[in-house]
Simulated assay, not measured.
Amino acid sequence: MATALITGASGGIGAAFAAELAKRQHNLILVARSEDKLQQLAAQLQQEFNILVEIIVQDLTAPGATTAVFDAVVKKGWTVDLLVNNAGFGDYGVFAVSEALEEDRPLAKQLTMVQLNIVALVELSHLFLQGMRQRKSGNIINVASLAAFQPMPYLSIYAATKAFVLSFSEALWAENKDLGIGVLCLCPGPTESDFAAVAEFPKSLASSSGQKLVPAAEVVRDALKALDKNESNVVTGGIPNQIIANMPRLMPRELLVKSVGKLFRAKA
């Protein structure tokens, strides 16, 4: 029976990955900060699908966090066949701090975002990929975003971190595909999750977006289909999101980023 390790597993896409993989008879290692949510999810999935579920309560932005996760897995004697790097968050607002602008974001939060969205993902990929290469088997899913395909004013650090994840994942896909190891970058559009609340989107922007939220379970199913096909990336959410992902190929970059900026500027 295969074993999957999922970060950010306490809700949203991470919890949906846990549910779908449990249904497919994967044993699970669930990683997140919220012990209560992890315990509740683990108990539910063990009872419903008769699988083994371990939880690791860990803030992946803490010093030494990824090594602590890896060491815990090794100590328990588990082999990770599928690594799902899902943990991450966004933050809405102007990047540079200024007292004149109420929506400015603190630098500390931006750096924490880089630590979680990039550094922790890279470290976990490196730690677990070594064993996969030795076994010549295994898979990694790195969760990016539709934001990976273009710069996004007011989500500047978030979009930049996801662009990194896309580029990094596609490079790993090329390096490892001949060894029987799959690496997929999942790029979902607006999804049913707590993303907007954590990112502190202004109510005026959230209410006027008109974007349909895709169920997290649907995003996960599309990701696993793409992984089975050994694709390097997948954009979920249908044709509109495919068009958005390909817009940088069709528009001058300055025009594109100005248009995105107008779309994401908070309404007065």
Rank of each mutant, 00 (worst) to 15 (best):
T3C: 05
L5Y: 03
L5H: 05
A9S: 00
G11E: 15
A18L: 02
A19Y: 07
A22S: 11
Q25H: 10
H26S: 00
N27D: 13
I29D: 04
A32P: 01
R33W: 08
S34K: 15
D36P: 13
A42N: 02
A42L: 01
A43K: 13
F49N: 14
F49Y: 13
V53M: 06
E54C: 11
L60P: 02
T66E: 04
T66D: 06
T66S: 10
T67R: 14
T67K: 14
F70C: 11
D71K: 13
A72H: 12
V73I: 09
K76N: 14
G77R: 05
W78N: 11
T79Q: 15
G90F: 04
G93Y: 02
A100E: 10
L101H: 15
E102P: 06
D104Q: 13
D104W: 13
R105L: 13
L111F: 13
T112Q: 15
Q115V: 04
N117G: 11
N117S: 11
E123K: 08
L127N: 05
M132R: 07
R133Y: 05
K136P: 06
K136R: 12
N142Q: 02
S145L: 06
L146I: 14
L146R: 09
P153H: 02
L155K: 11
S156T: 15
S156M: 13
Y158N: 05
A159S: 15
K162N: 09
F168K: 08
S169F: 03
E170T: 08
E170F: 04
A171V: 02
A171R: 01
A174M: 14
K177V: 15
D178G: 09
V183R: 01
V183Y: 03
C185P: 10
C187A: 07
P190I: 09
F195I: 00
V198R: 07
F201Y: 10
K203Y: 12
A206V: 14
S209F: 08
G210T: 01
G210R: 06
A217E: 10
E218C: 08
A226P: 02
A226R: 04
N230I: 02
I239E: 14
N246K: 14
P248L: 03
R249F: 14
F264C: 04
F264Q: 03
A266Q: 08
